[in-house]
Every structure is written in structure tokens, then in C-alpha cells.
Nucleic acid binder design. Sequence first.
RNA 1: GGAGAGGUGGCAGAGUGGCCGAUUGCGUCACCUUGCUAAGGUGAUGUACCGGUAACGGUACCGGGGGUUCGAAUCCCCCCCUCUCCGCCA
Length: 429
Amino acid sequence: MLDIKLLRENPEAARQAAVKKRMPDRQAAVDRALSIDAELRELLPRIDAMRSEQKTAGKAMGKLSPAEREAVLDGQKRLKAELQQLEEREKQLRADLQAQLALVPNLPDPDVPDGKDDTENVETKRHGTVPQFAFEPRPHYELAEAQGWVDFTRAAAMAGSRNYMLFGDLALLHDAVLRFAVELMVGRGFVAVDPPLLVRDAAMYGTGFFPGGEEQTYRCEKDGLNLIGTAEVPVTSLHGGEMLAEDELPKKYVARSACFRREAGTYGKDTRGLYRVHQFQKVEQVIVDVADKARSIAHHRDIVQNAEDLLQAFELPYRIVAVCGGDLGVPQAMKYDIETWMPSRGNYGETHSASRFYDYQARRLDLRYRPKDGGKPLFCHTLNNTVAASPRILIPLLENHQQADGTVRVPKALQPYLGGRAVLGKPQR
RNA sequence: GGAGAGGUGGCAGAGUGGCCGAUUGCGUCACCUUGCUAAGGUGAUGUACCGGUAACGGUACCGGGGGUUCGAAUCCCCCCCUCUCCGCCA
């Protein structure tokens, strides 16, 4: 969330943030928060003064004789009753303020392009050559089904739509991709993490998914736990409530986890194949560092580069887009998506999403550090990006590297993870 | 799931109704001192909010939430977490 002080000093910036992000309902939260804050600031000095009086008199009472005590008791009781009413109001206001503040979106950085939705994202880079096939290329689902690598029909029968089962070489490729991703990041100094998949509301709230993302989330009501949609949630929350030393920053983590998304409201979208599914595996990079915008921006470049290096190792054409205001989420200050060429779509499809938040998540998570110079504790900055999400990344791998006989070429970088094999699948003809 | 023990400041660990925002130790910072492989001395050192240009003043916070009381770290209730034992289990 944003600092209430920022709202007081520059409410227009917060309103404009909601406008740029195309979140009209969230815009109203700014003014609601400010009016609650104003009432609270009128109330607090009165409460403080009364408490001060109560405390002083109460302390003195300990030293009084029983008779003298009787004399002040009545006044104390009246004060207490009055105070209780005001305190109730204070509690209500604080809760309301918190609720409204939680709705105010993070300020988009100036380098976020204007735009209403993903069609207005701005391409900033293109890498690799889109393949030209001398034969009729097949979409990944046809290719994989022909090889016996995937079963959508039976998976849907037992688990519902948007489910799949991987078999044989494709199951192995899936795992190879994820292992490659983890090792790439470990080689760059990131600490491997295997996080919880079920988390409390506080973690969802702290990372900015709640309130707002409840419909996207599978929930175990009985235990009050939520299945994560990304390892960003448990890993960014890891140090929530802590006071870190500046010396231990930056914290760099790479987490491999299953991810679960209800995909509510996407009926009829991307229904075929492995693109949009309820459950997948993802390797995610997360950085927690000091409150320094320039460093955050540098980290942002680095984590995008990490993903680019993976795609280049996989010999896949991709492009990078700067996500526009209307397509930006509540907590992000700036986001790059990396889209990889998917022949069946005749287009690039999102495979990575790199976000920087500054202190928006850290503030919600109460994630702070003590600066070396001995200054006041500050909220950390957080960032994250996909390294590899599978099976979605299998789409470009299968489709770009398919061969005329229905087999699939394995990029050199992945061969060591597949027993040295250069080709997957049996020739179809 | 059952029984018990515990959660206190950056960390460790005292404190069982007013003298406690909290002894002490470690760590950190500042200054001083010292010529035998870097040790010793002195002092400072929680966070947040409100008011104030500031100095400063006030309030809240001892896992979280409620309650008792004029007054709660301390007593009562609920929840969460950690540890030990039993049961169950991948």
C-alpha cells in the first residue's frame, strides 16, 4: 500500500494512478481514505489527552489512602466510560482506513505507457527469427497428442476443464525445463526455495493479491488457507514482519512450485491446449533489496535479462513489451512481459512477467530493514519475474522446434537434462 | 487428533496488578585509552502515530483479538505460532 502521508501531500497522484490503471472503483478509495484520515486526526489528540489524564490520575491513586481513593474514583469511572466510546470510534476508523488504503493501487512509474489493455502494451525489444516451416506446422496439442504425450480428455473427465496430463518425453521435457531454470538462477547467486503452496490470507494480502484477487484463488475454507497462484506470494512474504540488516540485502530467491489459478471469467478463452490451465509449475525469481529506486530499476533489468537468457538458451524467438497502465495490476509500479513466439497462435504469447513494486508490497508485509548509516528503519523494495512456467513454455518449445516427421528437436542447452537426447518422439511418417 | 510447556526490544533473556517502555547480557553506534598476536573504558541505542519549524511534549505497542480493573507485560477467555510427549500417517 501507499504511505498515508503521500496521500495527504499529493492525493492527485494517487487518483491519477487509478486513472492510468483504469481502476475507477479504486480511485474513490483515495478520497474515502483521506476523509477517514481527517476524522481520525481530529479524534486522536482528544483521545490521547484523555488517556493521559486517566493515566496520571490512575498512577497517583496507587499512593492514596482508601478515603482519598474513593474521592477520585467516580471521576475516573466517568472518564473511562467516555473514553471507551471514543476508542470504539477510533478502532472503527482505523479498520476502515486500512481497508480503503488497501484498495489504493501503487503509483505507476512514468515509464509505464498509457493504454487501456494488453492490446496497447508497447514493444521494446524483439529477439530471434520467427521460423519458416517447409511443411504444415502443427499446434502443440495436436503434435503432443499424436505422440501420446498429453491427454486432455481423461484429465478433464476426472478433474474438469483446463486440466491436462503429461506423459513420457513431454513429462520429461517439462521437468527438464524447470531444472534448467533453477540451475541457471542458482548459478547467478539466487537461493533455491521450495515454498508452501497453501498460505494464509495475510500472505495474499501482503503481496497485493487480496483484496481483489479472491475469485482467481482456490481456497480451502475449512482451514482458511489459499492455494498460491505463484511462488511470489510465499517467497516475498518470507521476511514479512521482520527487520532485516542492510548487510543481508539484497535477498535473491528462486522458487520452484506448483501454481493454481481458477481462471474465473476466462470461459471460452484459450480453451485448447496447454496455454491457460488451472495448475502448472513455475520457477520464479524474487528479489528483496534496499529502498533505492535506481537499484530497483537495475534489478528489474537483471531479472528480465535472466529470463531472456533462458529463452535464448532454448533457441526461442521472443519480444518484450512494456505493460501499459490499463493492463498493470494493483501493486505493480512497472511491468515488462516477455512474450515468446507461438506458431499456432501466429503471434507472441506471454510466458514471463517481470514486476517491480518499490515498497508497495513491503509496506503491506511490514518488511523492513535497518539502514547501515543508523537511520530509521525503511521498507524494502521487492521485485519478481518468471524464469520458466511450464507447461506454457512447452508450447513454443514444441511448436518452434517441431520437425516434418512429427518429432521435436531439443535445444542443446536442454539435452543434458534429457539424457543427452537431441530429438524427442517417434517419427510419424 | 489428545496432553503439557512456552511466545517480552536487532538477538538472548529477567520481570506475576500501580515504582515497567520494561533489569541485564550480546550486538550496533560515538568518544576515549592502550605498543607484546587486538583488547579495555565511558556513553548512547525500540517502533509507530498525534501535536510542534525545532528543541520537545503526548499516546499506543511485551504473539494477535476480546474481557476484568480507577490502573494489565503481569489476572480471565478465544485464536495463532514454537517446543516436548502420545496417537495417526506419505
